[in-house]
Design a protein around this nucleic acid. Sequence first.
RNA 1: GCCGAAGUGGCGGAAUUGGUAGACGCGCUAGAUUCAGGAUCUAGUGGACAGUAUAUCCGUGGGAGUUCGAAUCUCCCCUUCGGCACCA
Length: 841
Amino acid sequence: MTARYDFKIIEERHQADWAKEGLFAAREDSSRSCYYVLEMFPYPSGRIHMGHVRNYTIGDVVARYKRMQGYNVLHPMGWDAFGMPAENAAIEHRTHPATWTYENIDYMRKQLKRLGLSYDWEREFATCDPDYYRWEQLFFIQMFEAGLVYRQKSKVNWCEGCRTVLANEQVEDGKCWRCDTEVVEKELDGWFFKITDYTQELLEGCDRLTGWPEKVLTMQRNWIGRSVGAEITFPLAGDDSEIRVFTTRSDTLFGATFMSLSPEHPMAMELCIGTGQEEEVKAFIDHWTKIPSRERQITKSPNHQITKSKEGVFTGAYVKHPLTGESIPIYIANFVLMEYGTGAVMAVPAHDQRDFEFAKEYKLPIKVVIQPEGGNLKPETMKEAWEGPGTLVNSGLFSGMENEQAKKAITRHLETHGLGNQKISYRLRDWGISRQRYWGTPIPMVQCDTCGIVPVRKQDLPVILPLDARLDKQGRSPLPGLESFWSTTCPKCGGPSRRETDTMDTFVESSWYFARYACPDETSAPLDRKRVDVWLPVNQYIGGIEHAILHLLYARFFTKVLRDLGWLSADEPFTNLLTQGMVLKDGAKMSKSKGNVVDPDKMINTYGVDTIRLFILFASPPERDLEWSDQGVEGAHRFLHRIWRLVTKNLEGLTSARTDKETLIQGTKASKALRQKTHQTILKVTEDIEQRFHFNTAISAVMELINEVMSCLNRYGTPEIDQQGDWAVLREAMEAVLILLFPMVPHITDELWQLLGHQKTISLEPWPVADLDVARADTVNIVVQVNGKLRSQVEVAQNTDKEIIESMVLDDPKVKRYTQGKAVHKIIYVPGRLINVVVRN
RNA sequence: GCCGAAGUGGCGGAAUUGGUAGACGCGCUAGAUUCAGGAUCUAGUGGACAGUAUAUCCGUGGGAGUUCGAAUCUCCCCUUCGGCACCA
């Protein structure tokens, strides 16, 4: 029987069978170890793209592999369903974001199901379901009560394209992460999550996340940006107030010759009053506070090079140096950031490049207080600041100290005299979550004229996002104009009040969805702690590197908050993280504008799901970018065809074979080698998947086994072959092929498995264990080198003595050619691999 | 500027701890089969040299070094990509 490989029928049939059997439904079951594998859930943008296919294929292989290993696997899927594209599409297509979103979900669910992904679909949800976001509103109120939420007027990143505020993490290169519009600064009231309460824990946690790529951890550490330094008090001259500065270089304190304040510094304006500098200072502050701090320093020079200019103005006021008592002029400088440290810095021009440039520009004194080893820095001749290590000079009591030591000594000295203290500063800012958008989770707060800001009562949740809203063409949120939504009564006094009309950043939804999968049916609480603790943390999380900071940092923060609110026990959400590379075509990311998009549906229609899965897994290891190749797809398809033919053309011989141990060892010499290869392949594939998810090399190994099977079959028909034993070995090999490939190409392997006479799906097979005795070779090839150059090879029995090999090698005519007339200096033997004869003239 | 990752045939990529560089696949070449094409099977495929030999030499971005031995370790340089970017 040689049925055609009709992938369409096969794939549909097996998908239906798996669904009918309920193979992928996860149940809490204490008898087996749990394994939670999760891929980053998609935004329902309309259609699945190749990036999704890659992401979910990788996750599916892991899920199926772990199931075969006996784990109780949780592998869920859902939808990150709130967000701007829905609003834009709704305006464009004159529909409602909800309609658009749910239609997309229905379509994309079909696409995912067609990919044969082993999800527990019973746990599916969309974050725009009120049954999901109501719990997010509860978390918000609980966080508010715990002091983790506050409202503040502040300068925010505003994207005019999206007509909303963006978090710091969502600004890339001064542009909106989504629409690329130049971000402007705007003063707005908004809600903040106090992620900075968890700075230290988020940072320390990085050291314990050993299952995360170092790259991601580095990015998170840099984003948090910890620096240890000191806060130092400078008393104002002729006044009893003071200005505090933050510095990481307290060792250079004696070199401070002026002070720089940010234009936004609260004292900037008042300092100059009565000094005659008022007008100049006012003009300067007016000018620079209009420019977002991000762009402040950057001026475009004529040749389009971006340069950073140091500009400032003297306030007319002075502070006193805390240790020397010297008068120090106070400047306002464009490069000092209000949002870092204290917004004021002590300027040490000799040892800070920015201060150096500023001092040169405004002719301020430069005082050297650190001498590098063997150096002799002089202010007059310095071309740039010396920021490296050295010995303190001109530093009173501290002169002669090494600068690292001096940092501590000076800080301690300041502390004992009440002039300063050790201080750790971070770059991380609180997470602004207010969005002036419609399609998001309503913030459950109320503004009452008498009571002020009051949370909605918990029993009144959810605050439902009204679906009768009409979007305007400019994309402004309809909520502030929708009285039926915002008009309400105060939860406290019952008086008339107004609901918050901003919605939450959609990154809030994705910060806890992985926990909700543990109990998506829970109606009385956001999370059922018992069930959540069974599954969390996620054992293996898989997604794109583009979320290295944004989503992954927020999810870590949220997990810690939920832990502290008592909803779960995990400290971290994801134990292991795999960041998969992008799918490229012609060297570039697929995009409509470039016209290099490969549509998964078309590919699947032509080649079938298994082919696409195989190609994606084979073309490159998962963490690397993958170059799409139509010829590569053909190759993958050909390989599946070859397996199909191998089984169907030899079905009679294969099905008649018994694979008990006695029959297996009856094989002839040719099939004995095949048997060894089979067990070596089991070892290799297991190792490749287990240790590093390198499916490409795992597939290569199976291809080698197939090649061996083919050459073995070519020898059949000759009379000396023992049919019984050989067919047994062939069957063992082919069954290994099917099982090893099953997690990657589940449909064709299940079909062939059942053609071989098995009654049940291959899904239920345990992962094979190699027989080490069979896998081990009787003989080994030892590479022979002379002076490190390959000259010959010898074949010897396993564990042959070193002396025997040595004498064999020295007798080898090929070796002799190089050793003749020379003295053998030494012989290096690497057991079982290599022998190197070192000779000298 | 700082931090990080990478650079291997015509292409995607192997080489897991310093031990046969180029596994596996694509592509290409030749042969078999075929009316022909496709498909399939067999053999070959880093470069140089070529004159008959299981030869020799070169070869993992470039240059030095360590070592019996380096794609792998060290130093310098070049290129590409990613992150941060006046963070005091």
